[in-house]
Design a protein around this nucleic acid. Structure first.
Lengths: 145, 145
DNA sequence: AGGTTGCATAGACACATCTCGATGCAGGCT
DNA sequence: AGCCTGCATCGAGATGTGTCTATGCAACCT
């Protein structure tokens, strides 16, 4: 359990190197890696689990608190936790009888960065919204047929 | 096609109202809605499609440019585009013979916000990283066994 | 009109995923 | 030791997903 094969999004996701989804075409390998993390988030049960873990005051939640919060069997909840763990979104630690889960914020931070548009576009949009309409007729290149 | 049932993440995702995944436990309905969008991102082909669309200079891409970029049949690419559309991530418009897709940045913006930690935690972590270790022994409540 | 091209839809099939009950294993009790 | 509790893993069954070929529809071009 200690030697889990959890995902690494690559150190380059946030630091300014790799531009994220929205600014460059994204090669196949990175797409594959990213897809695994998004797939882990693509289930309402896992989203609620992650949310419960992340929003906990102490930063940790006992599985014994998570399981009864769902209308699912204990093995099913355990299965979902495993997927979140393998996606690198959470980590677990056993202390005595109980197992505690905590968020790995690096991963969610990197995901958020991946979904964030380059600053240039944000500025452009802000400008476009500031000047409602009318004066800008033809700003988006030549859309004429 | 114009009356698609694409998802709305709710106007509250970003404006400061709803706190995102990581700061409050996330009720079942919101989890369900969010999961659909993440599920749409949980496939490498769709990630690459979204990336190609989002990073295009003019903001639009013709399907005729997307399809040959993949080692997949035309209906398969069309299917993936449909899922991205139904998730509210992209929109399509037909002009003459060709169909053009463009990013809906509101959705990715909201997703990024959903994955962003509340500012308090960011500050706390920045502080923790600034002061490497040693002086702070016991800042995280009582984790002592 | 007839033919051609671009894209979407329909139906089918292989494979993955979600869920469960049964079982295993670690740690704490009496 | 023996038992009980908390969590993980196993194997099975139902459902969902990704992909294909075949087909349909819209727009353009003789």
């Amino acid at each position: 359990m200690s030697k889990e094969e959890s995902l690494r999004l690559g150190e380059d996701g946030v630091g300014g190197c790799c531009p994220g989804l929205l600014s460059a075409p994204l090669d196949g390998d990175r797409a594959e890696t990213l897809a695994k993390v998004f797939k882990a988030l693509g289930d309402p049960v896992r989203l609620r689990l992650l949310s419960m873990i992340a929003s906990r005051a102490g930063g940790e939640v006992c599985v014994c608190d998570l399981t009864p919060a769902f209308d699912l069997s204990q093995p099913t909840v355990s299965h979902h936790l495993k997927l979140l763990r393998e996606a690198g979104l959470i980590a677990s630690e056993r202390r005595g009888t109980w197992v505690y889960y905590r968020l790995l914020p690096e991963t969610t931070d990197r995901l958020a960065a991946t979904l964030t548009r380059p600053t240039g576009e944000l500025l452009a949009q802000a400008a476009a919204e500031a000047v409602p309409a009318g004066s800008a007729a033809g700003t988006t290149a030549g859309a004429a047929s």
